[in-house]
């Protein structure tokens, strides 16, 4: 049986700005993640995917932002938690890895100390067995010569090794959910393959759910069970990975898939790009935010932003599917 781990409902994230009050970064976002499942969150820069991830951990600054809606983790709304209670969630139940491991590791502390700190804070080790445990964890994420690496600094390691260290720290408390925000974007393809392989292996061993955020459709197709496509702070399509790649519905999803050169295809022709650029936040006041780049846009798209229409297990935010689907 599948058990629901995380359920986000009607999440709105907005930031204060100088003039007009607030800029909305994420609008009315609802999704769920089951235990042990990998959900891919895909979209281009500025679509709100990273801000969504940070909000789940409540890592965006409170003074300048608002998170509305419910974020239920195992039935409890963590959006209502105090900062103190939130700290017991971070690392223990939800942990996160970032795109650039060099900026997330402290450059002036040795690797051993940084991992040891995690173990200490979560009472997984004491002073005596700390080093031993650290080495054990490093070995688990496939770091060669772990005994000597604990005494090295982050700058002495390669990008791939640093990301392994980040994964080691994130997985130390055996969290239920790992949020991976562009975990392989800064890495070379052969190293990317290693890291993805490691993530899959750890997921199988610990039944961790993964929220994988990336702009790389290839990585999504490889890793995800279910995919959420975001555009301009909204979910525009959601489906299981097979349906999404074989039968994409939203013009934006179709456009994305068409604009990526496919390494397997023999097609030598032109790519079909999406015309125009991703609009800046706050630029579009009404209607469907994708309409200016959409070939199928008609009157209705200018008037009203479509809701998500559901058909079987696929959700599409587009007026073209108004008749086929049921409003979700």
């Amino acid at each position: 049986m599948t058990i629901e781990l995380l359920k986000v409902e009607n999440m709105n994230i907005s930031f204060k700005d100088d003039e007009s009050g607030t800029t909305s970064a994420v609008k009315d976002l609802s999704f769920y993640i089951n235990e042990g499942e990998t959900v891919g969150l895909v979209g281009e820069s500025g679509c709100g995917k990273s801000v969504t991830a940070l909000s789940l951990m409540r890592l965006i600054e409170k003074n300048s932002s608002f998170i509305e809606g419910t974020i239920e983790l195992e039935g409890e709304d963590i959006n209502l938690f105090s900062e103190k209670k939130m700290r017991s969630i971070r690392g223990n139940k939800i942990s996160m890895i970032f795109q650039e491991p060099m900026t997330s590791l402290n450059p002036v502390h040795k690797i051993g100390k940084q991992i040891g700190e995690v173990l200490h804070l979560h009472a997984l080790a004491n002073k005596i067995n700390c080093k031993e445990k650290t080495i054990e964890i490093l070995k688990k994420v496939g770091i060669p010569r772990a005994e000597s690496i604990v005494d090295e600094y982050p700058h002495q390691l390669s990008g791939g090794m640093r990301q392994r260290i980040m994964i080691a720290m994130a997985m130390a408390c055996n969290p239920k959910l790992l949020i991976a925000d562009e975990p392989t974007t800064a890495l070379d393809v052969t190293i990317q393959a290693q890291i993805l392989d490691l993530m899959k292996m750890l997921q199988e061993e610990y039944n961790t759910a993964i929220l994988l955020i990336t702009h790389d459709l290839g990585v999504i197709s490889e890793m995800a069970d279910r995919v959420i496509v975001m555009y301009y702070g909204q979910i525009v399509e959601e489906a299981d990975v097979r349906t999404l790649f074989k039968n994409p519905k939203h013009p934006y999803t179709i456009g994305l898939l068409n604009s990526v050169p496919n390494i397997d295809s023999e097609n030598e022709g032109r790519l079909i790009p999406i015309e125009g650029n991703v609009p800046n936040l706050g630029m579009i006041k009404s209607g469907c935010p994708f309409r200016s780049r959409c070939q199928h846009a008609y009157v209705k798209c200018h008037e009203k932003n479509p809701p998500l229409f559901k058909r079987d297990s696929q959700f599409v935010r587009c007026w073209l599917y108004e008749e086929e689907g049921v409003q979700a």
Binding site: P144, S158, G160, M161, D188, V189, T190, I191, Q192, A193, Q194, L196, D197, D216, L217, G218, V219, S221, E222, V241, R242, F245, K246, L257, V260, N262, I263, D264
Partner: peptide, 25 residues
């Protein structure tokens, strides 16, 4: 060979034999 096999494909059904290189450049 390793480089080509490491590129993720857009087809979720394609299960290719991936050559995973050990170590770094």
């Amino acid at each position: 060979q390793a480089l080509i096999s490491a590129v993720p494909t857009l087809d979720p059904d394609a299960k290719k034999d991936r050559i995973i290189l050990s170590g770094d450049v």
